[in-house]
Design a protein around this nucleic acid. Structure first.
Lengths: 199, 199
DNA sequence: TGTACATCAGTGAACGCGCGTTCACTGATGTAC
DNA sequence: TGTACATCAGTGAACGCGCGTTCACTGATGTAC
């Protein structure tokens, strides 16, 4: 073998990470393979040694975000501290935070690419669904005795988090965006039964 | 004048309607001017007699959906009957209905194009914000004494409606999509204080 | 009423450009001797 | 230890195609006489 298998894996990972950032910012159709490869410090031609097509990479970039920790499992980014209350409450706060609003590059793709995914093929939609499943699971998990949303409640909380952020990002006025985020956050907290932990 | 002013207006409207349907289905970047003009029974070249650019049409298509009744004010499509309860409750039901889920062409663009809008210029975002404002207003309006959500509550209900639909459309499994819609609908009804009107 | 005209909505060929994908190649690397 | 080799990750030119936009034109229409 000319190169170590690790070399190949790392290059592939670098392409996926580059794609995640660029897709988040400009959407599937707004990003070229040239751009993705350039951000990964590579050139056009090498792409097809790692992926069979642009759509193929799209599905992997979406899937990778939550399920493959090697590509950076983003939920781990939310440091969960049992002392700070329920896991779900912390996720809601982080999800609807100003930081997540601003950080589009490393944003959750569920919020950065929903209408793109709706138009994509089944493997991309399946990846979206998996990501949603992971979020639901985290929302239902709990480190103490308070706030155990049912599956239906968790789905509604997820819809509120994603919807609130999606609407905030599509608004022109930052004041309106903030208003939407705060309203969604407050409502999600009530729905999860997490109101006893600060406002 | 060679043609009546109405002729010009009607052609322009036909282009906008065609654009609304196609943008809803394939997004801004997924639709060509050729396609838009063909669906409007016209040819490529005539486009620039009505619009200065594709982006220009995009902003108008978005704006037109709610504010310009000539282009088909979609909220009027939800026949509001005071006998059936609060206006807001009827809007929530219609918004999260299976019909709205399936009818992508004539869908609300807030749900069909949110991530596209987030990447667009300010005039498109302003149109989105206007549409949101119209929805909030309708949600707060009430034909009888029950269910008067505050502005914050109305914003949260709108986020829930949009988020629920966006997530449903991005899911691969229709059963999951239905589950999300129903969960979002139930939660929005509780938030609006409309639970006394059927489940 | 009929005709010549000016207007401009709509046509379709053409433009330059960037894209996804292919392909012949180069050269860095681990292995065999 | 040193060298020849086979492998294949990565390169960059090339391809065909579709796009947004431009432009010289055509021809349907309302108006003036």
């Amino acid at each position: 073998l000319p190169y170590t298998p690790e070399h190949r894996t790392q290059t592939r990972r670098r392409i996926v990470r580059s794609a995640q950032r660029l897709f988040n910012q400009h959407g599937f159709q707004g990003v070229s393979i040239d751009q993705i490869m350039a951000e990964a410090k590579l050139t056009r031609g090498g792409f097809y040694r790692h992926f069979s097509s642009k759509s193929d990479l799209y599905a992997e970039a979406m899937d990778c975000f939550f399920t493959n920790p090697e590509c950076g499992n983003r939920w781990e980014g939310v440091e969960v501290d049992p002392a700070k209350g329920a896991v779900g409450a912390q996720i809601v706060r982080a999800y609807l935070s100003r930081q997540h609003f601003q950080d589009i590059q490393d944003s959750c793709p569920m919020v950065a690419l929903p209408s793109d995914v709706a138009r994509s093929n089944d493997s991309v939609k399946r990846a979206y669904e998996t990501a949603l499943g992971a979020m639901i699971e985290h929302l239902q998990a709990d480190t103490d005795k308070t706030g155990h949303p049912t599956r239906a409640e968790a789905l509604a909380i997820a819809a509120m988090c994603i919807g609130g952020m999606v609407v905030a990002r599509a608004s022109e006025d930052v004041a309106v965006a903030d208003e939407v985020r705060e309203a969604a956050k407050a409502a999600a907290m009530v729905m999860g039964g997490w109101t006893e932990f600060d406002a």
